[in-house]
Design a protein around this nucleic acid. Sequence first.
DNA 1: ACAAAGATGCAACTTTGTTGCGTAAGGGGG
DNA 2: CCCCCTTACGCAACAAAGTTGCATCTTTGT
Lengths: 169, 169
Amino acid sequence: MAFLDFNHERFKPGFEITSTFVVTNNYRMKDTEITNLLHNANLRVTKSRKEVLQALSETGDQAISSNEIEQKLSEIDRITLYRILKAYEDAGLVHSIADGTGKKKYAMCSSNCSEGDHQDNHVHFYCRVCDTTSCLNVVIPTNLKFPTNYLVEEQQFVVSGICKDCHNQ
Amino acid sequence: MAFLDFNHERFKPGFEITSTFVVTNNYRMKDTEITNLLHNANLRVTKSRKEVLQALSETGDQAISSNEIEQKLSEIDRITLYRILKAYEDAGLVHSIADGTGKKKYAMCSSNCSEGDHQDNHVHFYCRVCDTTSCLNVVIPTNLKFPTNYLVEEQQFVVSGICKDCHNQ
DNA sequence: ACAAAGATGCAACTTTGTTGCGTAAGGGGG
DNA sequence: CCCCCTTACGCAACAAAGTTGCATCTTTGT
């Protein structure tokens, strides 16, 4: 856990991003992969749960809302979906983003998103043209000089504007 | 406007915060001040609008929800309040924060928050204990090395955890 | 003071999200 | 393979946030 004390220390996060920006794959997971993922997370394997993970893996780095998942799956119950997403978030399989649109967006955690004390420490981008939120493969460094008094548990860095696809038109 | 291109340039914002963390005043604005503020923003001066600005100025650096404002004012219509807040946001008098709670929080813009192309470029902190969101007097620098392709218009940096008051107990 | 422009207030509605509870299904033990 | 406990599902009902339309009232420039 990092500490904040803006009175005594400089707030100098010192971004030093080493990774370049690469769009993560829109990989359609195999059934066995999904089952293993659920097993490892101590979650029961059900039809709905597998479908939700499937849907999230297909969208890749693009974060989608509960409603969008519901439409992709058509058969799933709305309330069940909420509960599944909550379970996934608690388990660290999925992270949610408040992108300013008022709707929570969900995306699969990448492998570097550790369970338990899991932080979603990458930058998100919201495009106001195509109304999509995506995960950028750019990590908010955890070695920020956060001083005392404030206990920092999570950080969300959402950049909004126009994404590369919409901007090139 | 800054540009993003994670392929060619390092995402190296290079935080260099010069201001220290100081809680801004919970200053109760005078009636004439409020009137001037509205005039300068080309907004009509009405009872409700003055009261909303009053309420927001009283909370100071603490961002509050539409609902909280409604309760402080008791007489105001819920829908009118939404419209007032929208008008204030458009005019650059007020900025909103998506702190992850699902409710939009509002706070007055400080003087360095320029109108028009107004960015709310300071860090926000959400405390999960007292359930409050506050503006930190710490600015996200605008000289981030944002390269091409992505057009960056706004940035929101929300840090959450436990605030100094709740942590010292 | 008048008239146009704009703000207000009410109704009705949509969307998002939550809670409770009976039923169905998963999965470990025998 | 079946039983049974635990957990997930699905429905209803509800709560809260936010939007739209429209008639009425208020502000403000002339």
